[in-house]
Each structure stands twice: as structure tokens, then as C-alpha cells.
Design a protein around this nucleic acid. Structure first.
Length: 844
RNA sequence: GCGGCUGUAGCUCAGAGGGAGAGCACCACCUUGACACGGUGGGGGCCACAGGUUCGAUUCCUGUCAGCCGCACCA
């Protein structure tokens, strides 16, 4: 189930990340043979879409939505949706998402709208939706109510004014402290703490509200913090949520002095018509003129801002619809307690639980036109409210035909909360509901944990009795290179389409999925995308190499263990290991680790070592050998492509088509299973020894500036017959990769007089570099080596000498240390012997 | 105030109770018959700090410092 993006929005990197991860899961599971449904769709995004269309209307035609009228305006939004609604889904297609487009849904589709109504009516009938006059968050600019989580609190520097409220009987005054002097016209009381000795005598008296002739009572309420400001608090129930509660407790009036447009009304007397901001300047001036203003302190306090337009949000008393959260949250908490939902990473469960435990009722009505209109009708005769699934023409209470539908629409998130089941045909018992609900996994950003995940959880539980998903995988945000959030205002956003145009969708996908850890943010760097492209290019070239060297129509056999050489057995072992790792990481939704395992295997093991090794047999004369190598090459490439496919579907599919005998698309090929028969730790040890020898020689050549093209002779003295057999078996590789003119391998090889030596596990390597070898330097080099090895021996000996370690550490760890000790000791002895020999040669 | 995340190579970031890793950047060499979007070799890190647990801690625990993010009604 795809988190539905805003239908008229544009794709950003967050979407790209989210959908890449989902697509990886989907492709992976599909290849594993699961019956996978990935359902795409878009969200009507009430405020955002309406604002966008309004802006366009204003700019292009100079008309407001009010001039157009509701019906015409909504039609215009639909037209807009029809015109631009495909944008974002086309961008998703470009990203390569493999969802089922035939099932695409839109939150305002008929079916989904029906689900919305059904849910609304049922919740209303159950008493879980109610209409009430409450303080809500009002955005003056969007001209609508907002829910608590659509408000962002930010620390802002403000002023705390001390205002004198004279006693009504003329004896004394109370000083209240306020940051919002403009709301004083709606004050209905001054509150003090009941235990505050300073003001005990004032309780029950009256004070006169400055700038007006009104008198208001002094009341006692424990909400007041005596230590803050002056300990006197003005109570403005209509413009402050806490004051509202105080007002309710004391049965106070709740006059409003600020209107929905953010301007003061007649309660403000001479200040009527001013905006809040203007009034915040002018009222203190008026107070000062009247001698009512005390001191002014600077204060930093948290002020709510509209999460969409950043306007300061006004607490505003009005009639709104709410969802009663307590029972729903309790049910969600109970289900969580039963372990019905798994969070990846786990830590988000705590955040989630905390939110549910403290959640307040959800304000769901929005003063917009674009959205699901609230299915409630008010009767002009009896005042009754009728809530119904079908539009009504008569009052449900008195039968009057003078009914009028509520003007408001529902919060966009109300419909997205139903997404997991509304998209499957709920409330009908559809086949899809039976087959696909509950879903397995939800992937989304942690930034909408409350907005969306939480609400799907309690709606799902309430209406289907099940968690809508068993697992929720949360990822972070894509940030700009400097670590800041990408935002329109900063202009530091990166357009995924541009990334795709420049580097390809695969490169973008690989970048987003790779090298990240679960739940953490990532920064976007063009260099990383470039790196991904290089990797993909490497794969492409490796594939080209394989295809060039394999007959097009060949019916290559599955590689058989018995006939294979070290390198073959080693690469098959590494492949099996990689299959296991990648599968495991994907099952745990650890995409970064899966990507890393693939990167390392593909680049280091396959390209840098195996392909290089394969060239010898491919270009050699032994036909049997050649066809075996071809079989291994194709086998490994085949499996590598399968493993890579969820990450980079385009390139892998493209290469796959060229592989001999591949008729089915890669997307429906089987996911590889590690073959136990390919496990070969012995081959790994052998190959490591070979790699060590090759590296040692390359190192020497590089250090001694022996040109890569210059061939040199080499002698290897082996510790035992086993080492000899191994090195002998890879003789051609040594000759080639070390650029040798001659190679002697044996147990009783005599070191030449003048030679550079490298000690590796099981053998000593001699390069008789007469003329090139500087014995002075050689001695110094061996001395450094001796010291390094001596330090290692000492460290390991110390460990093994500790009886506690031998007694308590796991046996395999101890055994490994013993093996290391033996290896280091042998190497050290060889180096020391060599040094001694050099000394003799020098002296002689 | 409560909760969480992060601190590892010049940069961006992985990692894991037993000898510090990758990519990029850097230095040297290399037009070797897939790939210069490449190859080979190399330099570079008291794994923020201080305690504790452990035979053993960069990894687990506690605290400190620094950066960041949620949540919260302090007027």
C-alpha cells in the first residue's frame, strides 16, 4: 500500500526514497513467490490543493473562490486534478515502481468517499464523533481550523506586559502579566492561586478592565502558577485553551474579541478593525497613556504556527466536529500491548505509545470547500442534527424539509486514515479484503507517524478489528548536503526528476537505499549518486564481459563442485554467502546493509578477482576448463542480477534479456536461495592465501618502483606440501598477476643471495631483484615487518597467556587466537631468519 | 520540563562484545584484449570525554559535553 502523495503535488526526494524502499520490498517478495499487492494512489490534500487552485485562479483570472461560488470552485478543482493529477504518478513510474496501477485509487473516489461516510456515521452513532464549541487552532491565512498536530510550536521572542487592573471599588489594583494584551477585551476574570497569600483578600472582589468600563471578578484557580509573572492571570476563555478550561470550571462567559479573519471586533471598542499584530502594538500604547501599563519584560515562549503556511495560529472558540480519541487510543494501546504491530526501528514504538497516551480529541472539520463534506444536516425548524450515509432532504427529528448541510469538509487525514481498507472495497466484504487485509508492511517517513500511521491504526482497529499492517518500517528525511531540511523557501530542494535525467532512476534508487541505516535521515550529495552510477556502470561492463565471452546459444551446465578450481569454488561460496546476507537484510528491512553486501560482492569479489582470474581460462587452450569458467561466470552473473534487481530494476532487466536462454522477465524470476553445496570454507582459505601472495608481490613491485610491464622471476618456498599444492594449482594466476618471467615453487627452494622477501601464510616469496634491490632498504623493510609481527605475537600471546581469557572466552574465539598466534609466529621466524641471512650476506 | 537521535579517516556515512571499514577526496604508478564512470599500491583515525560492567568495550550501562529532532497549555 503506497502512502498516497498529494494528487497535485510534485515528486520530491522523500517520495523517491519511500517508494524506492517499498519497491525493493515488493520486488523482493514477488521474486520469492509471494502473492504481492502494492496498491498506488493519490490524496486529495484538502488545504494544499485548494490553496493551489485558489492561487492559480487569482493570478490567471483574478477571481476568488467566493466570487466563483462553491459548486463552480469545486468543479475547477476537479478539472485541475484531472489536468495535473497524473504528474506525480508519472514521476513515480519514471522511478520504476512496480505497483499495480490498475488498482490506483484517489481519496475522493466514489468508493473511498462511501467509506468515509460510513465511518463518520458509525463513529457519530457510537458517540465517538461529536460537534462542540471548543477552542481550536485557527489559521487566519488558510481560514480554517487545524488539528493539534498541524500546529508547529516555535520559540519566539515576545514581550510580557504587566497591566494594572484597578479594583472596582477604587481600593488598590492587581497587576496581571500577559503576552497578548490585544485579547484583554475578551477578559472575563482575573485568576489567582487559592493558596497565594498575596491575593487571598482579593478573591471574590471585582476589578475594572482598563480601556473599557467592564468589571470582572477575581477568582481562585489552582491552574495559576504563583511563581510566574505577578501570579495574577487574566482569563480570556475564547482566546486561550487554558483559559477556556478555567472558564468552563467557573461557568464564565466566553466573549470573543477576535474574529475569524484575525481582526478585533466591537468588543475592542476603539481598536475594532485592527489585526492582532497591530493591536499588540497599539493596546500597550493605550494602556500606557492611561497609566495602566507596568513594566515590559522580554520573554521567549513557544508560539504555534500553521504547519502549511507558517502563519501564527490563533486559539479560537468555534463550533467544530471532533473525534473522541480516548476509547480509540485505548484500543490502539491495548493492541500494541499484545504485540500486534512491529516497528522498524523499534524505538518508534515508544514515541507512538507516548503520543497515544496523551492524545487529545481530534478536530476534523475544516472550513474548506475541497474535500469530503461533512454528512450532517441542520434543521431550520427544530434545530436538530441529522447525520446520514445518504444525502437527506428531510430532518431526521421533525421531518421538516428545511435542512441545510454542514458547510465544512473533513480533515484530509480522515480519509487517508481509512486507506488500508477503503481502497479494498470496505465496507463491503470484498475478495480483496479477505485476501490482502491486513497488509504486511507499511513503509513511510517518521514525520507522518502521528498524522497517518497512528490514525490508520485506530481506524483499522475500530472498523476491521485488526491492525491494518503487521509491520511499519519508518525511514528518515532526505536533507540537503549541509544537513538542513530541503524546503521551498530555502530553495535548496533537489528535484528527483533532474536526478533521474542526469544519472538514471537506478542510480537514484541505489543511492537512496544504500549506505543508510534504519530510521535515520540522510543527506543528499550529487557525488553519491555519481558513485551509484559508477557502480551500475561497473555491473554493466562486467555483464558485457561475460556476454562477450560466452557463446550466445550455449546451453551451459550448472557448475558442478567437483570439477572446479579454487577460484570457482571460492566465488560460488561467496555468492551463496551474499545470497544469505542480502536475503536476511531485506527480510529485516535493512536496505543499507543489503546494498553494501551487494556492492562489495559485485565489485571486489566478482569484478576485481573472479573476472580477472577467469580471463586465463577463457583465453587459454583448455576447452573443458573454458566452458566450466563460462558456466560459473554466467551462473554468478545470473544470480547477481537477481539479487540486484530490487535495487536497480532497469539495468538488471536490460542485461537479463541478453543472457542466453532467459525467456521470462527478470522481475518474475525466482529469488536465489543459497546452495549448501556451494559452501566451501577451504576454498576461501586457499583463495585468501593466493590473494595475500599476489598483494604482497604487487606491494613490493610498487614500493620498489618495478614497472608493471617489467617481468621478473620469482621463487616461493612453501612451508609444507599442502601449501605447495595450492600455489602450484594457481601458478598461471601468479605468473599473470605478478608479471613473472619465471616461477619456482617448492618446499626446499633455496633463497637467492640478493632478493626482496615477503612472508605470507604458509610460504615465503623471493624476488631476486638484482640491480633493483637495495639491500639497505630491504633490511629496513624487513625490520619494520619484524617489529609489526613481533607486536602482533606479543598481543596474541598476552591474550592467550591470560587464564581468564582461555577459561571464559568462547572456544572458537580461543581457537582462532591460537591459529593467529601460530601464523604470526611462523611469519616472524621467517622474517628473522631472512634478516639473519641478509646480515651474513652483507658481512661476507 | 519529558522523550529520542547523533558524535568513528579531510568530507559523507556504515559497522559490531574479541585484530578499526566503505565511498568521495588525497599521494604514487598504470592507455593489461568489460570498464579511466577503470586498475594497482599507499598515506590518513587515543571510534567526543569520564566512570562502570566484562577475561576483553569503539560496541553494553551511567554521567558529562556538543549538535539535532520530537512531545508539552506555563500566561
Amino acid at each position: 500500500m503506497m502512502p498516497p502523495p498529494n494528487v497535485t503535488g510534485v515528486l520530491h526526494l522523500g517520495h523517491a526514497w519511500d517508494n524506492t524502499l517499498q519497491d525493493i520490498i515488493v520486488r523482493f517478495r514477488r521474486m520469492q513467490g509471494f502473492d504481492v499487492l502494492w496498491l498506488p494512489g493519490t490524496d486529495h490534500a484538502g488545504i494544499a490543493t485548494q490553496a493551489r487552485v485558489e492561487k492559480a485562479l487569482r493570478e490567471e483570472e483574478g477571481v476568488s473562490r467566493h466570487e466563483l461560488g462553491r459548486e463552480a470552485f469545486v468543479e475547477r478543482v476537479w478539472a485541475w486534478k484531472r489536468r495535473y493529477g497524473q504528474n506525480i504518478t508519472e514521476q513515480l513510474r519514471a522511478l520504476g515502481v512496480s505497483c499495480d496501477w490498475s488498482r490506483e485509487r484517489f481519496t475522493m473516489d466514489e468508493g473511498l468517499s462511501r467509506a468515509v461516510r460510513e465511518v463518520f456515521v458509525r463513529l457519530f452513532e457510537k458517540g465517538l464523533i461529536y460537534r462542540g464549541r471548543r477552542i481550536i487552532n485557527w489559521c487566519p491565512r488558510c481560514a480554517t481550523a487545524l488539528s493539534d498536530i498541524e500546529v508547529e510550536h516555535r520559540e519566539v521572542e515576545g514581550a510580557l506586559y504587566h497591566v494594572r487592573y484597578p479594583a472596582a471599588d477604587g481600593s488598590g489594583e492587581l497587576v496581571v502579566a500577559t503576552t497578548r494584551p490585544e485579547t484583554m477585551f475578551a477578559d472575563v476574570a482575573v485568576a489567582v492561586h487559592p493558596d497565594d497569600d498575596r491575593y487571598r483578600g482579593w478573591i471574590g472582589r471585582r476589578v475594572r478592565l482598563p480601556l473599557t468600563e467592564r468589571e470582572i471578578p477575581v477568582i481562585a484557580d489552582a491552574y495559576v502558577d504563583p511563581a510566574f509573572g505577578t501570579g495574577c492571570l487574566k482569563i480570556t476563555p475564547a482566546h486561550d485553551p487554558n483559559d477556556f478550561e478555567v472558564g468552563q470550571r467557573h461557568g464564565l462567559e466566553m466573549p470573543q474579541c477576535i474574529e475569524a479573519d484575525g481582526r478585533l471586533n466591537e468588543w475592542a471598542g476603539p481598536y475594532q478593525g485592527l489585526t492582532c499584530e497591530e493591536a499588540r502594538q497599539r493596546v500597550p500604547e493605550g494602556l500606557a497613556a492611561g497609566g495602566f501599563l507596568g513594566k515590559r519584560e522580554s520573554i521567549v515562549h513557544a508560539v504555534g504556527h500553521c504547519s502549511r503556511c507558517d502563519t501564527v495560529v490563533e486559539p479560537f472558540l468555534s463550533d467544530q466536529w471532533f473525534v473522541r480519541m480516548e476509547p480509540l487510543a485505548q484500543a490502539a494501546l491495548a493492541a500494541l500491548g499484545r504485540g500486534e504491530l512491529r516497528f522498524v526501528p523499534e524505538r518508534f514504538e515508544k514515541v507512538f505509545v507516548h503520543w497515544l497516551e496523551n492524545v487529545r480529541d481530534w478536530c476534523i472539520s475544516r472550513q474548506l470547500w475541497w474535500g469530503h463534506r461533512i454528512p450532517a444536516w441542520y434543521c431550520g425548524d427544530c434545530g436538530g442534527v441529522t447525520v446520514a450515509r445518504e444525502d437527506v432532504t428531510t430532518c431526521g427529528e421533525c421531518g421538516s424539509t428545511d435542512v441545510r448541510q454542514d458547510e465544512d469538509v473533513l480533515d484530509t487525514w480522515f480519509s487517508s486514515a481509512l486507506w488500508p481498507f477503503s481502497t479494498m472495497g470496505w465496507p463491503d466484504d470484498t475478495a480483496d479484503m479477505l485476501r490482502y487485509y491486513p497488509t504486511n508492511v507499511l513503509v513511510t517517513g517518521y514525520d507522518i507517524l502521528f498524522f497517518w500511521v497512528a490514525r490508520m491504526v485506530f481506524m483499522g482497529l475500530e472498523f476491521t478489528g485488526r491492525m491494518p499492517f503487521r509491520e511499519v518500517v519508518l525511514h528518515g528525511l532526505v536533507r540537503a548536503a549541509d544537513g538542513r531540511k530541503m524546503s521551498k523557501s530555502l530553495g535548496n530542494g533537489v528535484d528527483p526528476v533532474e536526478v533521474i535525467d542526469r544519472f538514471g532512476a537506478d542510480a537514484l534508487r541505489f543511492t537512496l537505499a544504500n549506505g543508510t541505516s534504519p530510521g535515520n535521515d540522510q543527506r543528499f550529495h550529487w557525488e553519491r549518486v555519481e558513485g551509484s552510477r559508477h557502480f551500475i556502470n561497473k555491473i554493466w561492463n562486467a555483464a558485457r564481459f561475460v556476454l562477450m565471452n560466452v557463446p550466445a546459444e550455449a546451453d551451459l551446465p550448472e557448475p558442478e563442485q567437483v570439477n572446479l578450481e579454487v577460484a570457482d569454488r571460492w566465488i560460488l561460496h561467496r555468492l551463496a554467502e551474499t545470497v544469505r546476507e542480502v536475503t536476511g537484510h531485506l527480510e529485516r528491512a535493512d536496505f543499507g546493509e543489503a546494498g553494501r553486501a551487494l556492492y562489495d560482492f559485485a565489485w571486489d569479489d566478482f569484478c576485481d578477482w573472479y573476472i580477472e582470474f577467469s580471463k586465463l581460462s577463457l583465453y587459454g587452450v583448455d576447452e573443458r576448463r573454458r566452458s566450466l569458467t563460462q558456466a560459473v561466470l554466467v551462473h554468478v552473473l545470473d544470480h547477481l542480477l537477481r539479487l540486484l534487481h530490487p535495487f536497480v530494476p532497469f539495468v538488471t532487466e536490460g542485461i537479463w534479456r541478453h543472457l542466453p536462454g532467459r525467456r521470462q522477465p527478470l522481475a518474475v524470476a525466482d529469488w536465489p536461495v543459497a546452495r549448501p553445496g556451494h559452501a566451501d570454507p577451504h576454498a576461501v582459505r586457499q583463495m585468501n592465501a593466493v590473494k595475500e601472495a599476489i598483494r604482497a608481490v604487487r606491494n613490493i613491485r610498487s614500493e620498489r618502483s618495478v614497472p608493471p610491464s617489467k617481468q621478473v622471476p620469482m621463487l616461493i618456498r612453501c612451508q609444507d606440501g599442502e601449501a605447495e599444492a595450492l600455489l602450484e594449482s594457481v601458478r598461471p594466476y601468479l605468473v599473470r598477476f605478478c608479471q613473472l618471467s619465471d616461477l619456482t615453487i617448492g618446499v626446499d627452494v633455496q633463497p637467492p643471495e640478493l632478493a626482496v622477501t615477503a612472508v605470507v601464510s604458509g610460504a615465503e616469496i623471493f624476488l631476486p631483484l638484482a640491480g633493483l634491490a637495495d639491500m639497505q632498504e630491504e633490511r629496513a623493510r624487513l625490520e619494520r615487518e619484524r617489529q609489526r609481527l613481533a607486536a602482533e605475537v606479543e598481543r596474541v600471546d598476552k591474550k592467550l597467556g591470560n587464564p581468564q581469557f582461555v577459561a571464559k572466552a568462547p572456544a572458537e574465539v580461543v581457537a582462532a587466537e591460537r591459529e593467529k598466534a601460530a601464523d604470526y609466529r611462523a611469519k616472524l621466524a621467517a622474517v628473522e631468519e631472512r634478516l639473519a641471512a641478509l646480515g651474513k650476506a652483507d658481512g661476507a
